[in-house]
Design a protein around this nucleic acid. Structure first.
Ligand SMILES: [Mn+2]
Ligand SMILES: [Mn+2]
Ligand SMILES: [Mn+2]
Ligand SMILES: [Mn+2]
Lengths: 145, 145
DNA sequence: AGTCGAATTTAGCATTGGCTAAACCTCTGT
DNA sequence: ACAGAGGTTTAGCCAATGCTAAATTCGACT
């Protein structure tokens, strides 16, 4: 059983790399909508500059990305106006927030400092499957008791 | 204390996103050298096709990437010959393997199934800071007792 | 030695995500 | 009313990562 065929090994491993590449292709959209939702909740509206500042990228980068998010049906925007989320956008933001929170709180519960938990969770969240997320949830539930 | 300035909030959050982007820029090189090291150890040599097959990408993609890895000083290769790692390449592979193993074993210890641990760790490994890695190590040490 | 199949490389292309600089709108305050 | 500041968009660029198809080289077997 430990002896795997060359081919089966390749198949198994390439599946992992494919998943990671697929995660990355969805990552940016997830971060954008989550951030936009946060800005709307915190300050009433999300402007391009705020998004750029929080992401640490140039304004022009945000403009271009927002067009893609519109094409994906996650965001609506009239020229020179603040950014709005579609229903689908809100849904995605909500899902993302929940996941992000669990990952961040999990790291804290594991004994990681606040700043590190904040930073690491921003990348880790996108690679956590449902199964792993559930395991983290169980760990958190255990911790409380 | 809970009330953060708009600016300070932006600075903190953009730092997290910058770290994630920086992680991604290093990720591919890390995966390549780790995979090449594995292939050399397992089968005596690493050929382009093996790398392509295990990563799940086209041959031409690997050729191009190997050139960049050569420029980075991680890999050496004569035309039409198998791939060798430089000293730096082996070092990076070793560091990567250790980290990858801790992350994967950590997920297993958390109660995640084998396949999921294998897949999720492939992406998560690149976003785990030294601090978080140590926390995972402590968790594993505790588990054993 | 010659041929054929497998591996490798090259060429040419597309998409994603980033940047700067310059032009363009909006809104607010005088 | 309108000037100026600040926000937004456009234009044009670049690097990274992927692909397919075609050309090339290597090596093993007759
Ligand atoms: Mn998030
Ligand atoms: Mn994120
Ligand atoms: Mn990632
Ligand atoms: Mn990896």
């Amino acid at each position: 059983m430990a002896g795997k065929t060359r081919q089966s090994k390749a198949k198994l491993q390439s599946a992992a790399f494919r998943r990671t590449r697929s995660d990355h292709s969805k990552e940016l959209a997830a971060d954008y909508v989550e951030l936009i939702a946060d800005l709307i909740d915190e300050r009433g509206s999300a402007r391009g500059t705020d998004v750029a500042l929080r992401l640490g990228v140039a304004n022009a980068t945000v403009v271009k990305m927002l067009k893609r998010l519109q094409d994906m049906g996650l965001v609506t925007q009239e020229p020179y106006r603040p950014i709005a989320l579609t229903g689908e956008g809100w849904e995605m933001a909500e899902t993302g927030r929940k996941k992000h929170q669990i990952v961040e709180r999990f790291l804290l519960a594991l004994g990681v400092g606040e700043e590190t938990a904040r930073i690491d969770s921003e990348g880790i969240e996108h690679h956590v499957s449902d199964e792993t997320l559930r395991a983290m949830g169980r760990f958190l539930a255990r911790q409380i008791s």
